[in-house]
Design a binder for these strands. Structure first.
Lengths: 145, 145
DNA sequence: ACACTAATTGTAAGCATTCTAATGTAATAA
DNA sequence: TTATTACATTAGAATGCTTACAATTAGTGT
């Protein structure tokens, strides 16, 4: 299932002239299989058993490469470190104020907002971002006690 | 005009048991009059002629106080430092990919999104955030040349 | 296999933000 | 008014994330 997405991503990289190194492959594979939206450090820690000599810089370098090519999105919330999301299909995020959990959800794209913003601000709008914040179901039930 | 908002803000602070110090007053006043969404450092630099001995920590401390009380919102974008917005009325932001300019715009609140997200994710949603990204009119005309 | 060039590594450096301990100051009650 | 108390400010150190750098290593096309 994700083999397909992985192969597609590798093809995209190759056609951009990017070399496929073992570390790069591992970071990409980890991101594609991740159910969460990991930080650079989480990726680094997850791969250090397989690549004991890998540098944090390598993780950051590769994330930047993936981002520039459009394979991953960088998510910046209030907390200190960025998170990375390789799901490039249109979706939004719900973020728990209590535990930080991030859940994806789908919603028809807000094209109207973009076009209204263009009229009002004079911008040439390329994309938008939206998140909802609240309490996840787990934290809700824990608070009930 | 902004005297009114300033006085309201001060009243809110007082009723929360927060003391009005000269530095605090200055940070608040600067934010209320700012047409932009300044960073902590921009506030610090803007006030250093009036308060040569003021510490950066004071700016951060006061911004946190204002934020906790709900007088300002912290905006975290991709760039390194947070920006602060004292316009608590419902509005959204358009951000220029080229020069970083931030322009406010109004749009009917996206309540539907919040309620759909609640159904799909099981979250108890408190609020949402949205931005559109693109090229501002100034950068558009500069690129034309 | 060779050569070319990009990628990785380890560490240092940069930057925004927070922490700490000492000092200062506003508000309150005696 | 004065003493007390709790909160604010200050300066600088410390933290944590991210990037820069120079040297080494290793893909890739021929």
């Amino acid at each position: 299932m994700s083999d397909h997405r992985l192969q597609d991503a590798i093809d995209t990289l190759k056609s951009s002239g990017v070399r496929i190194t073992p570390q790069r492959h591992a970071v990409l594979e980890f991101l594609l299989n991740a159910m969460t939206h990991p930080t650079a450090d989480e990726i680094y820690k997850a791969l250090e058993s397989k690549f004991p000599n890998m540098s944090v810089a390598t993780v950051y370098n590769n994330l930047r490469v993936f981002k520039d090519i459009g394979l991953v999105r960088e998510l910046t919330y209030g907390d200190s470190s960025s998170r990375f999301d390789c799901n490039t299909s249109d979706h939004y995020h719900a973020i728990c104020n209590n535990c930080g959990k991030i859940v994806d959800f789908h919603y028809p794209s807000l094209n109207e907002v973009e076009s209204l913003a263009e009229q009002v601000t004079g911008f040439d709008v390329s994309h938008h971002r939206m998140e909802v914040y609240g309490t996840c179901s787990k934290c809700q039930s824990e608070k009930a006690h």
